[in-house]
Amino acid sequence: MAQERFDLGLARWTTREIIVMAVISVALGLIFMAYGVLYLALVPFLGQVGIMLLLGFYYLTGILVPYIVRRPGAALVASFLAAFTELLAGSPFGIAAVWAGLVQGAGAEVVFALRGWRDYRLPVLMGAAVLSGVFAYVYEYFLLSYAVLEPTVQLGLFLVRIPSAIVLAGWLGKVLGDGLARTGVLRGLAITRSRS
């Protein structure tokens, strides 16, 4: 069969998987925009380091969608789509968010790839969330020039986001995925097939 030159493996997805991924990513993109208002409002109270406790939520798309459709590339594509939604919906950080989405998705994708895109148990989801955070840190390191900060502050910006990623992306991704599976709307997708 003729292949597109560059299809990210999407040719093997069913149409339903593609659209479900898109809808979840867009919904999360909208939620991220609402969350962003809250996030910015809380910065004065928690400080720039303390606010990293809330940052992990932004890695959720790259965990929840792969957990549901279980396809190679799902983390990268979904994470990009959620960020792209923010751009389309007029987020003031739109262009920077799109690049961040790609970087975060790539981080999660690496962990899923290392497990052969077969293992979606909770520790793997949490590991993927953590690597999302690590990749995002590298991106922010350049975008916000973390290099000029005091070394302890740099370390704080890195470390505080890790528990946040584990809970707000890894654990929450599993809870939301299982919850959605229980409602029955995901019938026929990989997440419901695995739990015979």
């Binding site: 597109e4 593609i18 809808v23 789509l81 939604t85």
Partner: peptide, 14 residues
């Protein structure tokens, strides 16, 4: 890839 692009368009309609 057009499959992804149509997902974006569909998502935009959503």
């Amino acid at each position: 890839p057009y499959r992804l692009a149509y997902a974006v368009l569909a998502a935009y309609r959503f």
